[in-house]
Simulated assay, not measured.
Amino acid sequence: MLLFSVLAAAIAPGIALLTYIYLKDKYDSEPLHMVIRVFLLGFLVVLPVMIFQRGLTFWLGDHTLLTSFGVSAGVEEFLKWFVVYHIIYNHTEFDEPYDGIVYAAAVSLGFATVENLLYAWAGYSSIGSLVIRSLLPVSGHAMFGIIMGYYLGRAKFSEGRSSKFFLALSLLFPWFWHGLYDIILNTLTQDWIWFIVPLMLLLWFLGMGKLARANSRSPFRVVKPEEEVNL
């Protein structure tokens, strides 16, 4: 019974956050089987991430800045971005800006869910610590995914240099925020909570704003006459 409770606590946060993001798509929801498939692809990202991170740690050594921005944030965000870009970006189902958010969040939360399961399996996490992980790393991965997906959506429906610019931002911004998150945890062993909580609140504020803006750019959105005047 305890094992079931721990596993449920490890899996539930990722699914709950992905469900929330999926349901916030106001105009043209993605096929559920596609979202589940991409979520499961996030599971597969864990293995290459572990391999690359282990190799980079041996090569670069244990330096806090390099570990936070290079080994941790750099590897994880690049591989998640790589999956979304090469599998989803040119897919026919990617037909509105919000879709980038759904699929990038799905990969990120699939990855975060496996991380939680590994912690639980290794015996490092009680139910209480898994709740904390749902409030911090799992929701952090969700916000990194939203930011990545927002700019992928901007890139997809832009042209020329603007498209390349937003494509670069889709990797740079989640990498920066993830690296900042990690450097706080890796350097502040005592007072980290006073910095990480404001950071998470900021990320949620940015993330919710990007959900709204992506929805507002949907080609399936019907603009009311009174809205046309304001535009």
Rank of each mutant, 00 (worst) to 15 (best):
T19V: 09
K26Q: 06
L60Q: 12
F52R: 11
K26L: 03
F52S: 13
G42L: 00
Y22E: 01
L41F: 07
Y20D: 11
V49P: 10
Y27V: 10
L56F: 08
Y20A: 03
I36V: 05
E30K: 00
F39D: 07
M34K: 10
P31D: 13
L60C: 07
P48K: 02
F43W: 00
E30P: 02
G55S: 12
G42I: 00
H33S: 14
L47Y: 05
K24R: 08
H33R: 09
V49F: 05
R54C: 12
I51H: 06
W59H: 14
T57L: 05
R54Y: 09
G55Q: 15
F52N: 08
L23R: 10
R54G: 03
M50R: 11
L56A: 15
H33E: 06
G61A: 05
H33C: 03
G42K: 10
F58K: 14
M34Y: 14
E30I: 01
L41S: 06
D25L: 03
G42A: 00
L40G: 04
L41K: 13
I21P: 08
G61W: 08
R37T: 14
D62I: 12
L47V: 07
P31A: 02
I36N: 07
L32E: 00
I36T: 15
V38C: 13
W59I: 12
Q53M: 15
G61N: 02
V45K: 08
M50G: 11
L47F: 13
Y27A: 12
D28M: 04
V35A: 01
T19Y: 13
Y27L: 09
M50W: 12
K24F: 08
F43C: 02
T19D: 02
G42M: 00
I36M: 07
G61H: 03
F39Y: 04
L32K: 11
T57A: 09
Y22S: 04
R54H: 12
F58C: 14
G55A: 15
G55N: 09
G55F: 12
L32M: 10
F43H: 00
D28N: 12
V46I: 15
D62N: 05
R54D: 07
L60F: 13
Y20T: 06
Y22V: 03
V38S: 04
G42P: 11
Q53T: 14
D62C: 01
Y27R: 06
L47H: 14
M50V: 13
Q53V: 04
D25S: 05
V46R: 06
D62W: 08
Q53W: 05
F58L: 15
I51G: 07
L32Q: 06
F52I: 15
L47N: 02
V49Y: 03
I51K: 06
L60G: 06
